[in-house]
Design a binder for these strands. Structure first.
Lengths: 338, 338
DNA sequence: GGGTCCCTCGAAATCGATTGCGAAACTCGT
DNA sequence: ACGAGTTTCGCAATCGATTTCGAGGGACCC
């Protein structure tokens, strides 16, 4: 009846006794139901329901070597981007009868390794990595183990991944600022070991280089993917003279940090310095000065990522996916609407 | 050596054979080590390391009835507040040798029940609930099961919880706006079933009532704890004439939604309408118009929550904790610094 | 020197579900 | 009515770790 109200859950053997059959019969009846008389299946299932039977995953996992768990590694769940991707992952996993097991790695290799080991100890049936590095020594190990895995958000050469087309996204941002006439621009470039930051920056610089206005290295600053990182990077970039007239941040939270740094410097967002972010998180549109941002389908990235993982685990051939980003122009780059 | 590089992990029996002892000896040597000669312990551990032995949690859990898992239920991980609390929970759990198992419930009772059942099926050793309801029918069931549990963020009468003093927090916000001379104020009050929204609203209204300016019900609007909810609520509140001169939102993301609604109505944040939020998330200080907010120690709430849970599981007496919030004044309520 | 106690470790049962194998019962055709 | 083939289900082993019980051996005391 009510599965949460029982003290000691019934076991297979108890169900078997109550139904007057052998435990193996119960196991089969509750499973595919093949090789068992239809009437028996119905009866056993009724008894199991009656007793509120819930299989013990530990016992099941011990015997079958499958845990029903999918491990997920992310840099931080406090990063809304990853949290949103995770929700997409979890939704599809739940539909397929899997549970997700998530862990923060803080983008620290040593922590990553430890957290992954913990997931492997739990005998997860697959792994989703949201914190892949461009030169990632963990990925070959996972591959060598034969464990199904997929990367989301970030990619790494030679590994299955679901990402957005970050080169294109960066280019969109660059072309937008070019069209607005910005000739001296700066980039808050994120972490140098993550494909997202690197490729978004690359696409942006490509656009400027193609226009004959290459962005010099000193106008590109790396940092963590949070408000603080954006603020710190922008403070340095804004100290240059002449000052850049626009800043592209490869992450919306970085962009908000940039806004804070602008304010601190007595500059107005959009009017004195244009700001463009990336991901178009839900609050970008609601800020006192709405943020221009490259929208990336985060939820879909999660859903597609888990779908690919499950397909791969089922032995189907799968290829990496690059989802298409789109530019959303708002007042932080275009205060007068154009 | 390298735990992630082995294909088939060694078992206890294999370690025993390699060490020339019985499996039970290995088990004891790797455990507390009591009742075993010190030399044997050292030797067995060395062999276990050598073989990269990792105990199978399924087997262990089957036998001991303990899973080493702590379940965590949250409304949504995309809510930074809960994500931050979760990180605090996880940090302490990890220190104590536990892993956390988190699930979103979307604040939907049916989903909560299902997710909790999934955690119980996994035989979690304890549960942290971040989505408690004022009239919560799940909590008595958990209590009846004898499973250790603790509430964080939200509280519910008669159950162990770690929260901030939300009545006080609301009062701080109210007294602040009163001191600034705001007489016609509105509240974005969050979900009516969550103690956070209810108590913050109550504290705020208490302050105004004490000043002889009770806040009428029509200037209090409920909604979800996200940007969209804040925007929707504020849109309605701002349609009233005369218009409120200040809005208290019980959540920072709601407050940002309020900012969006203000902009949409052609009003300036701080100058035309004051805005006060709650939680003081990291981006509040960085917004183009920095947000006045009631700071709550989210990370500490998580840490304290897990600590209490572990103490409770160990049979120690524990009492609910209310952490102290503090007001951080910024330009959204005080554009000229006073 | 004999007895007792403690230290150390092995034997074997156990947790709960799954599954290969085989036996009984039943269907059906002739 | 009998044999071949099928359906249905029970038996028992198994996954890997833990733990109770007891045996063997050494230390120690008188």
């Amino acid at each position: 009846m009510n599965p949460t109200a029982r003290r000691a859950p019934a076991t297979l053997a108890e169900v078997a006794r109550a139904a007057g059959v052998h435990p193996s019969t119960v196991s089969r009846a509750l499973g595919a139901g093949t090789g068992i008389a239809a009437a028996t299946v119905v009866r056993v299932r009724a008894v199991a329901d009656e007793l509120g039977y819930r299989p013990d995953p530990a016992a099941s996992s011990l015997r079958t070597r499958r845990s029903g768990l999918v491990g997920v590694l992310v840099p931080r769940l406090t990063d809304i981007v990853l949290a949103t991707i995770y929700e997409g992952l979890d939704a599809i996993a739940a539909d397929a009868g899997y549970q997700t097991f998530v862990a923060n790695t803080s983008d620290v290799p040593e922590v990553r390794r430890r957290r992954l080991a913990a997931l492997l100890d739990r005998r997860v049936d697959g792994v989703v990595l949201g914190d892949a590095r461009l030169d990632d020594d963990l990925l070959p190990e996972i591959a060598a183990r034969g464990l199904p895995y997929v990367l989301v958000s970030r990619r790494s050469r030679g590994h299955l991944s679901v990402t957005t087309d970050d080169l294109l996204g960066g280019r969109l941002a660059g072309e937008h600022l070019l069209a607005l006439g910005h000739e001296r621009v700066a980039v808050v470039a994120g972490q140098p070991f993550s494909s997202t930051g690197v490729e978004r920056t690359q696409g942006f610089r490509d656009a400027y280089a193609a226009a004959g206005l290459p962005v010099p290295d000193e106008r590109v600053r790396h940092g963590t993917y949070d408000v603080r990182g954006g603020h710190a990077a922008a403070r340095e970039l804004l100290a240059a003279r002449p000052r850049p007239t626009a800043v592209f941040a490869v992450n919306d939270f970085n962009a908000i940090g940039v806004m804070g740094a602008l304010r601190e410097a007595g500059l107005r967002v959009g009017r004195d310095v244009a700001v463009v972010g990336y991901n178009d998180v839900s609050l970008a549109a609601e800020l006192p000065v709405p943020l221009t941002s490259v929208a990336s389908p985060m939820d879909q990235m999660g859903r597609t990522g888990m779908t690919r993982l499950l397909q791969r685990a089922a032995g189907q051939p799968v290829r990496s996916v690059r989802l298409r980003p789109t530019l959303v122009v708002r007042e932080s780059s275009s205060p007068d609407g154009g």
